[in-house]
Design a binder for these strands. Structure first.
Lengths: 122, 122
DNA sequence: GCCAATAGTATCGTTTTCCTGACTAAGTGC
DNA sequence: GCACTTAGTCAGGAAAACGATACTATTGGC
């Protein structure tokens, strides 16, 4: 039903902006996996959060996972971590400028998703 | 060194376009993993390809993987598959409209990548 | 009859990712 | 001294993703 007519189109058209291609494997290292995009989405669109808030926000994630993903994101410069030496401890996570620069990509993804799930809006 | 000053910013600013959030897990099902984005990139920006061409284009992928990823993409309506009953066999793969709608997302990703790897380009 | 070419499939093993549950530190209130 | 809080860590196992190798079908050419 939704099968496209497989019309061949010439390979011109958009090959230039992309040169060959940007290295997907490396991008996947940064933002791939089951949790990273979700965590980033929360931090980018909702602002700074502390560990426990994030855990509640990203539903289904375990402590272990949240910690490890946050450590990876921090190492890659996508989130920053601030420790407040209080008791009980408080640690806040914030999206860095590098992560905020992903905003456009998130919007593009979102638009795509919306478009595909509303198909035919004439 | 490249740690951002962890300035907190208010949670306003962008929460509206996104309502709560678009379901990342489902998006990840469609385009996640090691190969799908690479395959889509080739088909979207270079046009229709046959199996063997694709295998040469996506370097490092095995037959088995390419087949399984293409099957998954086809099932999700992102590529269409056309079989030519010749010998030796010929099968062509084309990005569907649904996949072509991802073009903006690819561009956003690419821009992000370029920006982060050229940091400071004044 | 045998080889070559393309687009697969089948089977198994490895590697990576993810989850579970138990444990820790440090101060506060009782 | 005991429980309670938060933000972790650690060990172990299960599950999913990925990879290597061998095999199939078809037919044209030698």
């Amino acid at each position: 039903m939704n099968a496209e007519p497989p019309k061949k189109f010439p390979p011109t058209q958009a090959g230039k902006t992309f040169g060959k291609r940007c290295p997907m494997p490396e991008i996947a290292q940064l933002i791939g996996g089951k949790w990273k995009l979700i965590i980033l989405q929360v931090l980018i669109f909702q602002g700074t959060k502390r560990f426990g808030e994030l855990k509640r926000e990203v539903e289904g994630i375990t402590q272990t996972m949240l910690t490890s993903q946050l450590r990876a994101l921090e190492k890659d410069g996508l989130v920053s971590r601030e420790i407040f030496p209080e008791v009980p401890p408080r640690v806040e996570y914030t999206a860095t400028a590098k992560a905020l620069a992903l905003t456009d990509m998130f919007h593009a993804m979102h638009e795509w998703w919306v478009l595909q799930n509303n198909e035919q809006a004439s």
